[in-house]
Design a binder for these strands. Structure first.
Lengths: 142, 142
DNA sequence: ATGGATGCAAAGGGTTTGCAGACGA
DNA sequence: TCGTCTGCAAACCCTTTGCATCCAT
């Protein structure tokens, strides 16, 4: 997703209103690479808007996803969905111990990761998840 | 996971009992490449054992996962977990329309899909998800 | 002022837990 | 017989829905 101002423009364009809650959620996500869950977004935005409800967070996240400004990411390690403001083509690095999730850029030529047998599928895109251990967890393993 | 007999041996080895319910679940999964959800396993096994409960299905799936005989797969498209009896290293092909999930073999040399910047992570494995449209859904799109 | 947004409560889907009775070893 | 398994009910987590009130436009 883009900047707070871009999100405000987008919502206004669609006849949607700009509330303090939405503004706070935009500001939080525009500058976040941690792939927070809805609950984490709620807890963080609550520091500036203590009376915001989970519902508003869920609603705003769903709107951003439906506008293509936010990606919803599921991992094999956690049940709750996580949100990624980076909507360009990229891959993920997932820590098996602490479940930290990090974006990694794609290589220029990995848009077509070789596929031995596509079974007649028409492939649209591919996405790689690298599983491993983050620096902090490598240390902690001793 | 292996054959029904292998699963029976494994469970007995661990002091666990072989019930008709577990036998039926083993038989169903040993010969299934459709990546069923727990609910789908329940519905299918109910055809031979109408009185089985969902709980027994959930319990047995969880045991198989904990023994490393079954993989739990989450997709970005559905909320329910899906179960994969193929525990060897492989990738997935996911239909964006009907959500069919198919295994694809890895190439001999794709165990190390190039990673531009591992951020200090120690990588254990990588898994590719190809998104596209299955043959049936390509037809239906017209 | 007016219709969309908020936030409460309640419902929903998927999964886990607790426990009495059943049954495999 | 003994200890595990089954299956019911209830609880649990995450998310969505319904609705009266509120507020951005």
């Amino acid at each position: 997703m883009g900047s707070v101002d871009e999100m405000i423009r987008l919502f206004r364009q669609r006849g949607l209103r700009i509330t303090p809650q939405r503004r706070a959620i935009f500001a939080l996500l525009a500058d976040d690479a941690s792939h927070p869950t809805a609950e984490e977004v709620y807890q963080r935005v609550r520091q500036s808007l203590p009376d915001i409800s989970r519902m508003t967070v869920y609603n705003t996240l769903r709107e951003l996803v439906s506008f293509g400004e936010l990606l919803e990411v599921e991992t094999d390690l956690d049940r709750a969905g996580r949100y990624d403001p980076n909507t360009s083509h990229h891959h993920h690095l997932l820590c098996l111990r602490c479940h930290a999730l990090v974006d990694v850029e794609t290589l220029p030529d990995d848009l077509d990761i070789p596929l031995p047998d596509a079974r007649g599928y028409r492939i649209v895109r591919s996405q790689v998840t690298y599983y491993g251990y983050c620096p902090a967890c490598q240390q902690a393993e001793d």
